[in-house]
Design a protein around this nucleic acid. Sequence first.
DNA 1: TGATCGTGTCTCGGATACGAGACACTGAAG
DNA 2: CTTCAGTGTCTCGTATCCGAGACACGATCA
Lengths: 258, 258
Amino acid sequence: MITGQVPAAARALAVLRVLARAPGPLPAGALARELELPRSTVYHLLTAMIEQGFVTHLPEERRYGLGIAAFEIGSAYTRQEPLQRLSRLILTRLVDAVGHTAHLGVLHGREVLYLIEERAPGRPPLVTDVGVRLPSERTASGRAMLAALPAAQVRALFPGREPAQSPTQLRRLLTGVRRAGYAEEVDEVTPGFSSVAVAVLDHTGYPAAAVAVTCPSGTLDDDVRTRLVTSVTAAAQALERRLHGGRLTPADRPDSAP
Amino acid sequence: MITGQVPAAARALAVLRVLARAPGPLPAGALARELELPRSTVYHLLTAMIEQGFVTHLPEERRYGLGIAAFEIGSAYTRQEPLQRLSRLILTRLVDAVGHTAHLGVLHGREVLYLIEERAPGRPPLVTDVGVRLPSERTASGRAMLAALPAAQVRALFPGREPAQSPTQLRRLLTGVRRAGYAEEVDEVTPGFSSVAVAVLDHTGYPAAAVAVTCPSGTLDDDVRTRLVTSVTAAAQALERRLHGGRLTPADRPDSAP
DNA sequence: TGATCGTGTCTCGGATACGAGACACTGAAG
DNA sequence: CTTCAGTGTCTCGTATCCGAGACACGATCA
């Protein structure tokens, strides 16, 4: 439903969002149906978007997909956004220290949105790819952040009408996270893989992000867990210091955590 | 200069491109001046873009920056674009095999646009970040691709009015690249770092991309160069086979290159 | 303090963007 | 082969989007 003073502008952006959510390029007719727009309008929009590189036309398939300009503004966001800029090196060092793939995620509504995936050598790609959204209550990152949210806010996000997780179970789970100081997820996102995560709090105590590490479930005994939690916690704290305007010190390196 | 049937749509996209090229968030007045638009129009555009998450308002700074939706469509492009999808694993294996950071770049106009950076453990971030554009004739990736272009096309891209590189020098350089089968760049992009690159040709022989590896210049003796070139060439060929609809075989792994 | 500059918001007449509808083309199915 | 559904392109009357301009506010400077 497009309202406002510049409906054509809003429509172009809506086209981008539809194309981004699709598994691949779409026919113009499908776009028109999805957006409930006249066909001629959609062609006009697509023409402008192709000209500026945001959409690419695949004439053999008679479909339209995202264009290189979409990639460029996404990359520009990554370079400009302070949270991501500050996190890159910290996550790199975390991966070098623990040898497992690490992620930075943020809460967006009830979902986790993954901003960074720092892959460890020899490790496979995970479903938690950059730009991917997952239900927050099922992921370690989401749980870590939810546990740091005020209870009223968690209640507003999860009012209890879902069959997947009752408010009592969620409250219990988040209490456990707060007591332990980290969150965990075993086999729920990807069978055979487990994650531990720690929230990154801003200066008001709000969870701005979460740092997580993912390893094969079979390797996650008590020793490994302790070691991962220590490193992830140190990384989260380093990022907190960076967010609060602090400066990196040798103690901020995960491999020299106390 | 905005023309066409949906000028407001085109303007919104132009706003995104201006914000993407800026080092950080911009004031609305600066956007209006850059785009030569009335101020009230810019505020209307920004309102729609903020609503859909493409732009974020920083009221304390009285500036506007790219929003999370920009990141999401950029990530969606990465997931959907066949070249990037097909390249990820191949580049990962290349990095695992040679221990240095690898890149995938494409030619766009006279520039190289970096689509993928696969970082090696313990290696620092490079200027050749994803979404970054660099002059093609100064980078190994660009040289590899220019060498595979028809001469007429190279002449059209570099008509000789630049003081930086004469057409004769460029032609000689590209002849050398073709003879050697790979391109090189020493200390030109980043002092202290060198790259070797090989073009990836599509089924028509057009250079669809280039694979490159970057290492400290001090380590690049003849043995290392030979080893890197062999692995990069194998990766480029593996990607060519994937692009042509072939299927990965054990021989496609860089660490078992012939 | 007052003056100036830039930001953010809003109004309303008229220029232009929008879209209903038509036509040509293509590919798939019977 | 014919038919049908979908794609791509275009026209032109009118509804609505656009922007010139006004106002209020906040920050900075002399």
